[in-house]
Structures are given as C-alpha cells and as structure tokens.
Simulated assay, not measured.
Amino acid sequence: MRIGELARRSGVSERSLRYYETQGLLTSERTPGGHREYGEWAVDRVIRIQILYAAGLNSRTIAGMLPCMRDTDGGPSEIATQRLVDDLLAERDRIDTLIGNLVRSREVLDEVIGTASEAVKPR
C-alpha cells in the first residue's frame, strides 16, 4: 500500500510516517518511480508506535523494542537482549507509576467535585 493509504488506515499523517522512517521505526520498499510501498503489517506497526508514543516513550526506546514487536508479518525479526527486557520492564514500571498517580489525582478531583456540588445545592 502507498503512504496515503497507510496514513488513512492507521490514522497517522503522512508526515509522521516519513518521520517514523527516518527514526528507523518503519520501513518501506520503493517503487521504480520512488513511491513508498508498505506491507499490510505496517498498519499494526504504526498503531503500536502511536500507542507507545502516547505512553511517553521516545523514538529511541521504541526502536529498541521493535525486535520484540509482533506485526502481522510473522513475529520478531531479531533476538531480544537482557538489556532490552530490563528496559521494557523499567518502562512498564514507569507507566504503572503514572497510572497510580492519575488514579490518585482523579480521587482528589472527585472529592473536590463532591464538596463543590454540596456547596452549590440549594438548602
């Protein structure tokens, strides 16, 4: 598929897809005319990259994770290292901490909403 179709199917701009290529997160074949061509696996890859960016990971970290990503093309392309596993565990711990902080923030906000709601109720 061409870059425009990948952008449409993944919900990511063509500019972002080009950036992913420069960062080594995505690869394409080139047609004789120089157009990018992607396999079906690229849709899953791009969606996963977006999720990882949304979780706060940077492109270098994501690039290190690619050997362990299973796209529809069959699975990991390289053997993972212990360092990669350790880095992934650290990222998961960081995300767990963020989730815990968000839950606590929501609880405080709920308390404030409750107090504010009581204050505006007619007596």
Rank of each mutant, 00 (worst) to 15 (best):
E37G: 06
T97I: 07
M69H: 01
L89H: 14
Q82I: 11
R36L: 07
L66S: 10
L89G: 13
N58L: 08
G39P: 01
V103H: 13
D44P: 04
R48Q: 11
V43C: 02
R48C: 01
S77P: 00
M69T: 00
N58M: 05
R36V: 13
I51R: 06
R48K: 12
A55H: 00
Y38T: 08
D96C: 11
M69V: 02
V103N: 09
I47Y: 01
T72P: 01
R48T: 12
D71Q: 03
G74H: 07
L57I: 07
G64V: 01
I62G: 02
I49H: 12
V85L: 15
G74L: 01
L98R: 14
I62T: 00
G74D: 04
A90I: 01
H35S: 06
I62H: 02
M65Q: 07
D44M: 03
I62W: 01
E37L: 15
G75E: 02
E40A: 15
D86H: 10
M69I: 07
E37Q: 15
Q82S: 10
T81Q: 03
V43Q: 02
S59Q: 03
D93E: 08
Q50H: 06
G74S: 05
M65D: 02
H35E: 10
L84N: 08
G34L: 12
E91G: 01
I49G: 04
M69G: 03
R94P: 09
D96I: 04
I99F: 08
I51T: 14
G56Y: 08
R60D: 13
I51Y: 03
I49C: 01
D71R: 11
R92L: 15
L88H: 05
A55I: 01
L102M: 09
A55C: 12
L52C: 00
E78L: 02
R60L: 10
D71C: 13
R36P: 10
A42D: 04
L52D: 00
A63N: 12
C68S: 14
T72A: 10
G39H: 04
A80W: 05
L98S: 10
E78F: 00
I79R: 15
I49T: 05
L84R: 13
T61M: 11
L57C: 02
D71P: 02
T81R: 07
Q82Y: 05
D73H: 14
G75Q: 03
G100M: 03
P67A: 08
E37M: 07
I49D: 09
T61C: 10
G64T: 04
Y38M: 09
T81M: 04
R83A: 14
I79D: 06
L57M: 15
G100N: 14
P76I: 00
